[in-house]
Design a protein around this nucleic acid. Structure first.
Lengths: 211, 211
DNA sequence: GGCGGCGGATACACCGATGTATCCGATGCG
DNA sequence: CGCATCGGATACATCGGTGTATCCGCCGCC
């Protein structure tokens, strides 16, 4: 499948194997550079150097650094979403809050680098409504995944009514995740963050449990 | 007290009234510019133009744009801290969680612009340990203020033990605040954010209450 | 009211990053 | 195996931002 896959892409543009490879390498390298220095402090040149290409390669694949950044974000976000889906799907019949929390926290707080990039993206979205919609949509999907799962759990043992059903509870889970993320960005203690997130989620979700 | 206050400052540098005014105006203008475009997308020139000065004025008062940004942050952070202190001190004898939450949420989620700048600062701190220490110290102070107050509350009606005492509960309050902040940055709905934060805090703090 | 000095304005040189135009080599097809 | 095309490299023009050196006017004290 060398160049035979040079099929017309969605935009009618042929994409050869070679092209796809450089594009992927640029994205991969950009991930590291963005994480290290932050979008806004990174030049096109730096990304190319890290990937082992010249700027010519960049301009052949992207129009602007922002475009690359957005593509990078969406790509990884998709990946995370898949992982969460997996973590939630595992042992689907399990309605124990604790084990659910356990699995989700494991997936959500893995790499600090991703959190750094996600925060850069948040900053961009905070000022540009169009970008914000992308991020909100992504969050909505995660929230729904969680809400569905929590709904099952709630069937066995009711969630705190203060939160407002499975929907509200899912909202709370996201908020807790965001909150812990902030702390992790500052103290760099991934292990502590994971423990703390677990604790926080348990406090939120099983509050009325032992009433 | 016109120019007589041109007393040697802490660094042995005379600071005249005129100088202080321009400095303040630059900071004030910078606040708006940073909030609108984000640190990293702002040039020195832009700040000066917004303030009604030329770049000469800037370089006379600051060495770099980053320095101005940090000064700006610390100045406002101090102000917020004072407001929170005030909100917590009011009706010091009051040990009702709900009214406490009410007062704090009112102070914490006022202007979106401040949240934008604070997030920019977070991004900077996430990559520079030195900056991180500043931010962590600021958070620590807020946390202790809250913890002290929660300790009083806990004397009347115990907090959820899952959180780990007043200290842990204060930690949770900060996390919830950060989480709601993220959402607010995206959807721009301040009123909703305030309601939601209140709900979240109540869920966290009064969970075991009616047991 | 003149004068010294501080604060801010103006002008200039420099640098880094961007975007583009052109060129060359690799890739894959007939 | 030769050729056409695509992808990436190189070279160049340009621009915006920065920092600095110098100048001027206003403020404030004698």
């Amino acid at each position: 499948m060398a160049a035979t896959d040079a099929a017309p892409g969605p935009g009618g543009v042929r994409v050869t194997a070679r092209r796809a490879r450089t594009r992927a390498r640029l994205l991969e390298a950009a991930f590291g550079v963005f994480a290290a220095k932050g979008f806004g402090r990174v030049s096109i040149e730096e990304v190319c150097e890290a990937a082992g290409y010249s700027r010519g390669a960049f301009y052949s694949n992207f129009d602007t650094l922002e475009e690359l950044f957005f593509v990078l974000y969406e790509e990884r976000a998709e990946l995370i979403a898949a992982q969460v889906t997996g973590a939630l799907a595992a042992r689907a019949g399990d309605t124990d809050v604790a084990s659910l929390v356990e699995r989700v926290t494991g997936v959500l707080l893995l790499e600090r680098d991703w959190l750094l990039i996600k925060t850069d993206f948040l900053v961009a979205a905070a000022r540009d409504p169009r970008t914000a919609r992308t991020l909100l949509e992504h969050r909505r999907r995660l929230r729904e995944l969680i809400a569905e799962r929590l709904a099952e759990v709630a069937a066995e043992r009711p969630l705190p009514e203060v939160l407002g059903g499975a929907e509200g509870a899912a909202h709370a889970v996201i908020a807790a995740y965001d909150g812990v993320t902030t702390q992790l960005l500052l103290d760099r203690d991934v292990e502590h963050a994971r423990v703390w997130l677990r604790q926080l989620l348990l406090a939120l979700l099983s509050a009325d449990g032992p009433r």
